[in-house]
């Protein structure tokens, strides 16, 4: 098995104290190799607790979990957490808060060094990772990570995780607190990492408009449970459920659904603003100008706008 398999996982924090809090309630889930998963849910809905399980950072209290061929419930011999953590790369919220070394190169090399790789291999991996996140090796390698801008710091921190060459990459709120430019950088980067480094990617985000841009599967957590788990293309069917959970609905979905109620039925599964634009354009052309030449010109412009 190359993916993740979770069965009936339940977890409670601070058991038997006034601070006792259930975080996961009987959660079952299977993630296959190559999945691009987006997870949304409120703070405290259980999503962070779930990913901490996947990386062996908390031990399962009840239920079972295995990641690739590593069974995390196994007692003897204990599961090989070291290998687990090279297979599963974890980018936490505000990952730049974990930077500690005096140069960018050393900080990114921390993970590979813990893997006891050779000096050349470490250097190679640092170079590759920096190139992937878009930081020039010669420019940045000797700089102190603490002198960089917020967006650059975050890219250094992500490079530090992908230098482990994980097969599964998990990112928790990767764009939190960044300005629009920094956000854009990270979002582009995530898709690139999926193609070049880790075939399986899981992203947790509060921002559904952001998640719809890349994930192909959506898991919604509500109140310690999985509320639904669907292919992203079916998201438009679940507007009411999302609203009832107090979660945001992508604007394009909302618009398409309310236009439909007003008798304007746009075609296609509309999830992103790009989908909306294309459908509105098609609808408009279909209704008002059927002349072929016009359609041709418009398709050309629309391709340009979409790109």
């Amino acid at each position: 098995m190359q993916g993740i398999e979770i069965k009936n996982l339940t977890y409670t924090y601070s058991q038997k104290t006034p601070y006792e809090k259930k975080a996961l309630d009987n959660v079952s889930l299977k993630i296959n190799e190559g999945d691009f998963v987006g997870i949304i849910g409120h703070t405290g809905s259980g999503k962070s607790t779930l990913i901490q399980h996947i990386n062996g950072l908390i031990k399962p209290q009840s239920g079972s979990i295995s990641v690739m061929d590593i069974n995390l419930n196994q007692k003897k011999p204990k599961p090989d957490l070291k290998r687990l953590r090279t297979e599963v790369g974890m980018v936490f919220q505000y990952p730049e808060h974990q930077l500690f070394d005096d140069t960018v190169e050393k900080d990114i090399g921390f993970g590979p060094k813990n893997l006891k790789l050779s000096t050349e291999e470490i250097k190679q991996r640092v170079q590759d990772s920096m190139e992937l996140v878009g930081l020039d090796y010669n420019d940045f390698k000797d700089r102190s990570p603490f002198d960089l801008s917020g967006g650059q710091k975050r890219r250094v921190a992500i490079a530090g995780v992908i230098a482990m060459r994980p097969k599964i990459l998990i990112l928790d709120e990767p764009t939190a607190g960044l300005d629009p430019e920094g956000k854009e950088h990270i979002l582009t980067l995530i898709s690139k990492l999926k193609n070049d480094v880790s075939p399986t990617v899981i992203v947790i985000s509060h921002d559904i408009d952001e998640i719809t841009r890349f994930a192909t599967r959506l898991i919604v957590f509500n109140n310690t449970k999985i509320a639904f788990d669907i292919p992203m293309a079916e998201l438009f069917k679940h507007e009411d459920e999302l609203v009832s959970m107090g979660l945001a609905v992508p604007m394009a979905v909302r618009l398409a659904n309310s236009l439909k109620k007003k008798g304007i039925a746009l075609k296609g599964n509309i999830i992103t603003p790009q989908d909306l634009n294309a459908s509105v354009e098609a609808y408009y052309n279909n209704k008002f100008n059927n002349s072929e030449s016009n359609v041709l010109i418009d398709t050309a412009t629309s391709a340009e706008v979409r790109s």
């Binding site: 629009p180 509105v280 354009e281 412009t301």
Partner: peptide, 20 residues
């Protein structure tokens, strides 16, 4: 300036460019 327009504004702008 790397500032993104509010989403409704940006959708409207793009539709305008598509000739709508």
């Amino acid at each position: 300036l790397h500032l993104t327009l509010p989403l409704p504004t940006s959708i409207a702008h793009n539709l305008g460019r598509l000739g709508i």
